[in-house]
Design a protein around this nucleic acid. Structure first.
Length: 656
DNA sequence: AAGGAGGGTTTTTTT
DNA sequence: AACCCTCCTT
């Protein structure tokens, strides 16, 4: 049987769902291979199988690099491989996200680029603060260019490999001019703090590869095989890193589904999966179209929907089990929608004994779950909100992480700015403004310009005293945290006591219950540190921060992983990628929400097509039951506004 | 400098 | 409706 474009597979008796030719290609092939795997065709299983087979054939595990999209997926793959191979695996395959892989390379090699090896990774919140500060430093008012917009422009530039100095060549209007200036300032301040953002991790790795052949060679020699999951979501930088890595042997296996590409806004380029055969001539292509997850009814609806997209590899999923019809439910308003959905769920859980964990509510934006949460709480249905901003965006968590960052890195001005007056210690906005202006102007730290400003009476002696005291406090604690074998949790608890962080909470929240809840959040942070310390070989504040930046919510915080809790799952369509549930409620199918207003306003077909793929991803998360709902009236900024049913509804049920 | 009242704005998804 | 910013008072 020939390789190349294989025909849709007939289901075979083999449990892996591959026909012999595919099996052959997937498992034994070297050289470039593209596995086009539709939703629910078991692509993770295929990639794991391949890895296990390579190891069986004698490839040392550590010579295989598997790149996944999330840390959660990495962990899962690690476990599956372990389960297949058990004791035969003496070493472990390198399984990680792109970013985690880059961090490992950079920790060893980044000094060549003039960065400290102990660089700090800025998470999304830090990036926003840094962008805000950059705009402040160059005196751009918020109205002219929002920090969020600056960030996405910076990200686009970085992904395209445009350095700060070059950015002005790529602008066509005043906003672009401001953005270019903002980019220069932003990057300079990260540089000065020895910090990197997510894009830097990729960009700097690529720069190392480009400028230091011996570094590239070391990495190339490390791996004999590279495989990438969710290939449809790779951006330009990731693509180029991979291309460099596999250049000597071309043993690259990528798995993905162009119909599930939902990160275009983050720079993901469908062209990489669509053009794989041009990029890697001679590549074999295997299509997996047998869906083992959903019912015929669900697949039918999903197929109809995604067929409306133009730029895609043609394929049609084939379902293998029948179930009940997909339900389409209009509700008078959003309140009724939440009540209706939760009433259904409550019935399933209490009357039919369906495990709550079998049920998911999926939505487009993070403002949607609120009302569902309220209903779930009212009926006492256990639920968890996945992702979103729940934990990490809480003020206390951000404060605490900022303190840790400042303690582990004196240069981190962005974090310092957040906490220098939290709790209030007499360093007000006016004084900070002057300190920062002088610091920016002379390119020094606020600590070193403070004496001059007090001498010229720019700041008051009282303020100066507070600044000095705080500086001394940080300096006295820093070495204690840096000590070898320091008990991080205990130290940090003492530290919080000394700065009297509790007083901040008490001041901020009048309500007793709120205070208790917020203090519990602080405790949660501390237990995360404790947990990290007990598991880590050489624990340090920096190590903890790196982990939280990279893995975020899944691992380092929270007792048991959110996803495994016996509760109804609430999450955005983006977070639902890669998951499946017996029962799914896809809510808010309205113009302006799905497709999102911003994509509609963008006016491009690609924008709408990505929204359509998002709906497609949502629908195909459901194994057996899918309910799609929308509200006919929705509360927007305190006002009821009639809605227009999503265009996707008509596409999913064409005869109506 | 700090806290509180009043007014204006709200535009997505996340490694 | 909720949040953030600004201005005002202490």
């Amino acid at each position: 049987m020939s390789h190349g474009l294989t025909t849709p597979p007939r289901p075979t008796s083999s449990a892996d769902g591959l026909n012999p030719a595919q099996r052959d290609a997937v498992i034994t092939m070297r050289g470039p291979l593209l596995v086009l795997a539709g939703a629910g065709t078991g692509k993770t299983r295929v990639i794991t199988m391949r890895m296990a087979e390579l190891i069986r054939q004698g490839v040392p595990p550590e010579r295989i690099l598997s790149v996944t999209f999330t840390n959660k997926a990495a962990k899962e793959m690690q476990e599956r491989t372990q389960a297949i191979l058990g004791r035969r695996m003496k070493t472990r395959p390198a399984i990680s996200t792109f970013h985690a892989y880059c961090v490992r390379v950079l920790r060893d090699e980044i000094e060549a680029l003039g960065y400290p090896s102990q660089f700090v990774i800025y998470d999304r919140g830090d990036q926003e603060s840094a962008a805000r500060k950059a705009l402040r430093d160059i005196k751009v008012p918020d109205a002219a260019l929002r920090p969020g917009d600056l960030l996405s422009q910076i990200s686009r530039w970085k992904t395209a490999g445009v350095a700060p100095d070059e950015a002005s060549q790529f602008i066509d209007d005043d906003r672009g001019y401001l953005a270019a200036a903002g980019y220069r300032r932003y990057q300079a301040s990260l540089r000065a703090a020895g910090s990197v953002d997510f894009d830097d991790l990729l960009m700097l790795t690529l720069r190392l590869f480009d400028e230091f052949p011996e570094v590239l060679e070391r990495q190339q020699n490390r791996f004999e095989h590279v495989q990438i999951d969710e290939y449809q979501d790779t951006n330009e930088l990731q693509f180029r890193i991979v291309a460099e890595l596999v250049r000597p042997h071309r043993n690259l296996c990528v798995v993905g589904d162009d119909d599930q590409s939902i990160y275009g806004w983050r720079g993901a380029e469908i062209k990489h999966i669509l053009g794989f055969q041009q990029q890697f001539p001679g590549a074999k292509v295997v299509r997996l179209q047998d869906n083992y997850r959903c019912t015929t009814q669900i697949i039918d609806v999903a197929n109809k929907l995604v067929k409306c997209n133009r730029g895609r590899h043609e394929k049609t999923l084939i379902a293998h089990k029948s179930g009940s019809d997909v339900l389409f439910k209009p509700y008078p308003d959003e309140q009724a929608e939440a009540e209706g959905v939760v009433r259904d769920i409550n019935y399933l859980v209490t009357q039919l004994n369906i495990p709550p964990a079998d049920i998911a509510i999926l939505f487009r934006t993070n403002e949607q779950p609120r009302i569902f949460e309220t209903e779930l709480r009212r009926l006492r249905v256990p639920y968890t909100l996945i992702g979103g901003q729940s934990f990490f965006d809480r003020r206390e968590v951000r404060d605490i992480l900022a303190y840790m960052k400042v303690l582990s890195n004196p240069q981190d001005e962005v974090s310092l700015l957040r906490i220098i007056n939290v709790p209030t210690r007499g360093i007000g906005d006016a004084a900070m403004d002057k300190l920062l202006n002088e610091a920016v102007k002379s390119g020094r730290t606020i600590w070193s310009v403070a004496p001059e400003l007090v001498a010229t009476k720019t700041i008051s002696a009282k303020t100066y005293g507070s600044v000095q005291r705080f500086h001394a406090l940080l300096e006295s604690w820093r070495p204690r945290f840096a000590e070898k074998g320091a008990m991080l949790v205990d130290l940090f608890r003492q530290f919080l006591k000394e700065i009297d962080y509790d007083s901040e909470i008490e001041k901020q929240y009048a309500d007793q219950q709120q205070q208790v809840a917020r203090k519990a959040v602080v405790e949660e942070c501390l237990s995360a540190v404790k947990e990290y310390q007990s598991r880590s070989l050489r624990p340090s504040l920096g190590g903890f921060l790196e982990e939280t930046a990279l893995t975020g919510k899944d691992d380092s915080f929270g007792e048991n992983p959110e996803l495994e809790r016996p509760a109804v799952k609430l999450m955005t369509l983006h977070s639902a990628k890669g998951l499946e549930f017996p029962r799914v409620y896809l809510v808010g199918l309205e113009e302006g929400i799905l497709p999102h207003q911003r994509s509609i306003d963008g006016g491009t077909t690609e924008g709408i097509e990505e929204e359509r793929r998002l709906a497609y991803v949502g629908a195909t998360r459901a194994r057996d039951f899918l309910t799609i709902s929308w509200a006919q009236v929705r509360l927007k900024w305190g006002k009821m506004k009639p809605t227009i049913p999503s265009r996707f509804l008509a596409e999913m049920q064409p005869e109506e």
